[in-house]
C-alpha cells in the first residue's frame, strides 16, 4: 500500500473517529468492485462484513481494522465463521493494521487455526494469506482511497453508499 494511501487513511481516522472501521470496509468494498467480482453485498451479521462472488465462488470477509496493531476475534465471531465454512463458503479475514508498512492481509479462515478472544497481530494471519486475492485489490485500494477518501470524510457512510451504488455488482443485503 502506498504511503500516500496511509496518509489519507490516517487523515480520515482523525476526522471520522468511530466511523473509521466501517468507512475502511466500504472503501475495501469499492476496491473489490473495481476488480471483476460479481455481486458484492455488505452485511452486518455475525462473522460477515462483505460477501461476494469471485469466479463463481462464494467468498465472505470479516473485515478487521486496528489502531493498535492487533485485532481480536471472539468465540462468537469464530462460531459464525465456522458456520459459513460448513455452508461451503470461502471465508476470509481481511485485516488492516495501523502503520506505514502495513497492507491488507486477506487470510483464508479454517476452523481451529486461530485462537479466540486473544489480541492477534498480523503474524498469525500471514500463514494463511491469499496473495492472489491481495494483489487483486492492492492497486485498486490505493486508487479508491485516493479518489473517494474525501467523500468518506465529508459525507461519511451515506456518501460511500452512494459511491457503492454506482457499481452494477453492488447489492444490498
Amino acid at each position: 500500500m502506498k504511503q500516500e494511501t496511509h496518509r489519507k487513511l490516517e487523515q480520515m481516522r482523525a476526522e471520522v473517529g468511530r466511523d473509521y472501521g466501517k468507512l475502511v470496509q466500504k472503501l475495501l468494498a469499492v476496491a473489490f468492485l473495481e476488480t471483476d467480482v460479481q455481486k458484492l453485498v455488505e452485511r452486518s451479521t455475525q462473522g460477515i462484513d462483505l460477501e461476494m462472488q469471485i469466479a463463481g465462488e462464494r467468498c465472505v470477509f470479516e473485515v478487521k481494522t486496528s489502531e493498535s496493531n492487533s485485532i481480536r476475534l471472539s468465540a462468537k465471531d469464530f462460531e459464525g465463521l465456522d458456520r459459513l465454512v460448513e455452508d461451503g463458503a470461502s471465508v476470509y479475514i481481511a485485516a488492516l493494521m495501523n502503520g506505514p508498512l502495513e497492507s491488507w492481509i486477506l487470510a483464508r479462515y479454517t476452523p481451529g487455526e486461530f485462537p479466540a478472544g486473544k489480541d492477534l497481530s498480523s503474524f498469525p494471519f500471514r500463514a494463511h494469506r491469499d496473495s492472489d486475492l491481495e494483489r487483486r485489490i492492492l492497486t485498486a485500494f490505493d486508487r479508491v482511497v485516493d479518489r473517494d477518501v474525501h467523500t468518506a470524510i465529508t459525507r461519511r457512510q451515506g456518501g460511500m453508499d452512494e459511491v457503492l451504488q454506482g457499481y452494477p455488482a453492488w447489492g444490498r443485503a
Binding site: 481451529g112 487455526e113 503474524f123 500471514r126 500463514a127 494463511h128
Partner: peptide, 14 residues
C-alpha cells in the same frame, strides 16, 4: 520470509 516464518509458526502451533 515473515510469511514463511508465520507458516512455520502456524504449523508448530497447530
Amino acid at each position: 520470509v515473515i510469511d514463511a516464518a508465520a507458516g512455520f509458526a502456524s504449523d508448530l502451533e497447530a
